[in-house]
Design a protein around this nucleic acid. Structure first.
Lengths: 246, 246
DNA sequence: CGAGCGGTTGAGGCATGTCAAGAGTTGTGG
DNA sequence: CCACAACTCTTGACATGCCTCAACCGCTCG
């Protein structure tokens, strides 16, 4: 691991409050690794040997069933993924592949499990992290069940605008193909939906998004604190898609 | 609270391992309450003042958005709900209403938050509970995104059969109307789907389910350990629907 | 340059929701 | 005890949302 990696990790809420000695112990058994783009790092069903920390790049979490596949989340630096599987010492529920060249730190799950029994501050941090992640997936499930795909697209575009600082022009953080899967629709359907949304106050040209009539778009998206907000404590990543699941 | 309530609660994984003194402290500030059927106990958006423990009856967790509503889970005795909201001291993401006459114990969220900083065994139990719940919602999200409604119905019927002990005949645990909402479809569509599934090895007459050709039904449902299984540690309820979310 | 990939567009079909009506059941009050 | 209301469930007819298949464009990269 590079010396400049440590402060970045230490800055995460998950590791911020634990004792320095325990942090160092945990890190001493961890190691960093670089992956090329498009590489599968984790396969669903595999035993959860490591907590993953993304330091650079981007990771897609996706799920498969019966020859179908869908994107569940995109994880950006600096944040962690598959914490819940490591805690429970259970198989990963999702696979993970790199979207770009990505630098990852791998923390042995067994050390993690041993550590939170010894360091109260660490266990409190894990509790907060899990609770926030839990609520995040509930929001996502609500969105899937309560909104149509058109409403999900509108909400997404609006939320992204907020994350970009409230500007009415920004660029999409991921390929449309991936975005479609994340939102639970086909690329063709997303493409058509974006076209139709031009009548509702937003124009998308390539990766460029321009909100032309925020009031109109808002009326369609009906943003809701209980669906679209993110738990602030956890959202320290500037992550463009709702944070790491699992 | 009745004296016979305590052992039931103590038996939950969440409270099993904490010290007796701490358990008693937590319970001394808690109180039980009985609710008639069809009563709203929790409204989404309200501040999370209490962890809820279901001792008798049944509770539906549901979510609303823009005049639409959907069932997220049904909680049966003995188990808890809205743990994550209490932990984070954040608004409930879901509402809760009783399906039957229901007996609930209310644990003040502030006491809960204070306690897990003091009792390591309790914090470990919370970590396990949250991680299991987290994974449970991820499974649910995978099911929604990867399966068609027909496949979800088939999986549900098959999973229920397993929970009933592998028998090929059992009764539905909830009204079809609620089941439809839980599975993300309309009652009409569920009704039609059940009819069509008679060609795939299962017959539903009223609340009675009879699996007539398990192999055929299994081929359609393609049960998957990474979607349909439940974390055993948490599934001590005999719950008929996947356990409490949130 | 050519292959491969992402994105778009069109045509067509299936799945699902909506609206409406009626049968059966449950619960309530006269 | 019956009558009625309210509710669930079912079925039909219809509309529509979404997917599938196919073709094509434009870009990137070997």
């Amino acid at each position: 691991m590079r010396p400049e990696d440590l402060p970045e990790i230490r800055h995460l809420h998950l590791f911020r409050d634990m004792s320095q000695a325990n942090f160092e112990t945990l890190m001493s058994s961890s190691y960093a690794q670089n992956f090329p783009p498009g590489l599968d790092m984790v396969r669903q069903g595999d035993p959860s040997d490591f907590l993953h920390i993304v330091l650079e790049g981007a990771v897609e979490l996706y799920a498969k069933w019966a020859d179908r596949e869908c994107t569940m989340a995109v994880v950006r630096p600096v944040s962690t993924f598959i914490l819940a599987a490591c805690i429970r010492d259970a198989p990963y529920l999702m696979s993970a592949r790199t979207l770009e060249r990505t630098r990852i730190v791998l923390v042995p799950a067994s050390d993690l499990r041993a550590m939170f029994r010894r360091d109260t501050e660490f266990s409190v941090a894990i509790i907060n992290e899990l609770a926030a992640g839990y609520r995040s997936v509930v929001r996502s499930a609500k969105s899937l069940k309560l909104r149509t795909s058109r409403e999900r697209v509108a909400s997404f575009l609006l939320t992204q605008s907020m994350l970009a600082g409230g500007t009415s022009s920004y660029t999409l953080p991921v390929e449309k193909r991936l975005l479609a899967s994340y939102l639970g629709m086909t690329p063709e359907n997303l493409s058509r939906t974006l076209r139709l949304l031009e009548a509702d106050g937003v124009k998308v040209d390539g990766a460029r998004v321009i909100i032309t009539d925020r009031a109109k778009l808002t009326a369609l998206a009906k943003p809701d604190k209980l669906i679209d907000a993110s738990e602030t404590a956890i959202d320290q990543t500037g992550s463009s898609l709702p944070r790491a699941l699992e």
